[in-house]
Nucleic acid binder design. Structure first.
Lengths: 204, 204
DNA sequence: ACCTGAACACCGTTCAAGT
DNA sequence: ACCTGAACACCGTTCAAGT
C-alpha cells in the first residue's frame, strides 16, 4: 500500500500471478506479454521493466511453481517426520495433483521449456532445492534400511523419472483416452504405479 | 519423378522432413510455417494445401517420430525374439537415445504439445500402437514368469512413465548440470535406473 | 496442386519522449 | 517505475485471382 509509486506498485508479482492464470486458460502457446499487460491495465512494454524478455518471465513463473511444491513438501516433512517411504509417496502425489489441476504450469516446469543450463539463478536454485529434498528423503530411507543401500543419486533419479513421467502422461491426457475412461480409476492406477517404484527401491 | 505436377510433387513429405530439421535447429518455438515454406521454395500458404493449420503439421511430424520408434522396435523384436526383458530394456534405450540426439522432436512427441484427445486419427493410431507394443512385451514377460503376474496395464504404465520421465530429464538438460558433469557418466547412470524399474517389475 | 500478392490481427522487442 | 505511441520484423491464417 505504501509503495504504489505510480500506478501499480507491485507489477512484478502481479505479472507472475496473472501469467499463471493465463497459462491455465490458454496454455503456454497462448500466453503473450502483450495480453498480460492488457489484463493488468499497464502499457505493453511495462513488463520489460521487470523481465529482460518473455523467457525470463516464464522462468520466474516456473520458479514460483517450484516454490509452491517446496512449501507443500516442508509441510509433509513435519507431518511424516520419520517415515521417508510415505514422504516419497506423498510428494509424488503432490506432483501428480499439480499435473492434473494445473497441467500447463506443470508442463512449463517439467516439459523442457527451460534449458536449465541457460536459465537464471533463481530458477536454478529452486529446481536444485527440489532435487535436494528428494535426496534427503532417500538417504533417510537407506539409513533406516527401508531402501536398498547404494548410490543415492541413482535412486533419486529413478524416483524423479517415474513421478515426472507419470505426471506428464496424466497432464497430456495420454491416459484418459488410451488406457482408461474414468479419471478416478486412473488415479487408483497411478497410485499402484508408485508401488512398483517402491518395490524397485526397497530392500529385498 | 512422375508426379511433379507443378513445382514440387511431394510437398507434404518434404514439409514433414524439413520440419524435423528445423525443429532440431530452432526448437519447437522457432518453427514457423512461413520459414518452412521459404526453405522449400514454395509460397507461404502452400502448406495449407496439405495441413489445415500448424497444429496438424506438428501432429504429422510427431506421428513420423512414432513411426521411427516403431520401426526400431520391430527390428528389436526379431533380434530378441523370446527375451522380453531385453526387449523392454532396449526399447527404453532407443527412447533415451532419441531424447538426447533429437531432443526437440522428442519433446514434441512426449511433452504434451498434442492433447491426444483432440488430435487426428493418424497420430492417435501411432501413439496407440506404441503402447500396444509395450503391452505385448510385458504380457510375454509375465507369461514367462519373469515379471510378477498382475495387471498388465499397471506395469506398462510404470515402464512408460519411468522411461519417458528419464528421457525428458535427459533432453532438457536437467541432469548434466545438477547431477553429473559427464555425458558418458550420465548414460551409465541411466542404465542403472532401468535396473531399478526392472527390479520393481520382476518376480521376487 | 501449386503460384503471387494483398490483407488482417496478432506477436516480441526496442525506441523516444513524457510524468 | 511507469506512461503513450510509434516502429520493426515476424507470425498464422484467409482471401482473390492466376497456371
Amino acid at each position: 500500500m505504501q509503495n504504489k509509486t505510480y500506478h501499480h506498485g507491485d507489477l512484478r508479482n502481479a505479472l507472475i500471478l496473472e501469467a499463471i492464470v493465463m497459462l491455465h486458460e490458454k496454455g503456454i502457446g497462448g500466453l503473450s506479454l502483450r495480453e498480460l499487460a492488457r489484463r493488468l491495465g499497464v502499457g505493453h512494454n511495462a513488463p520489460y521493466r521487470h523481465f529482460k524478455n518473455k523467457q525470463q518471465l516464464l522462468e520466474a513463473v516456473a520458479a514460483t511453481g517450484f516454490r509452491r511444491l517446496k512449501a507443500h513438501n516442508i509441510r509433509l516433512e513435519l507431518e511424516l517426520a520419520d517415515d521417508p517411504e510415505s514422504q516419497l509417496f506423498e510428494s509424488g502425489v503432490a506432483i501428480l495433483n499439480m499435473a492434473m489441476e494445473q497441467p500447463e504450469l506443470f508442463r512449463l516446469m517439467f516439459g523442457g521449456y527451460l534449458s536449465l543450463g541457460k536459465c537464471g539463478p533463481e530458477l536454478k536454485e529452486e529446481a536444485h532445492a527440489s532435487i535436494e529434498s528428494l535426496v534427503k528423503i532417500i538417504s533417510l530411507a537407506q539409513q533406516q534400511d527401508i531402501f536398498a543401500r547404494g548410490d543415492v543419486m541413482r535412486q533419486t533419479l529413478a524416483a524423479m523419472s517415474m513421478v515426472q513421467g507419470l505426471a506428464m502422461m496424466a497432464s497430456s491426457g495420454m491416459l484418459r483416452d488410451n488406457v482408461t475412461g474414468d479419471e478416478q480409476q486412473f488415479k487408483r492406477l497411478a497410485l499402484q504405479v508408485y508401488d512398483i517404484l517402491l518395490m524397485g527401491l526397497k530392500k529385498r
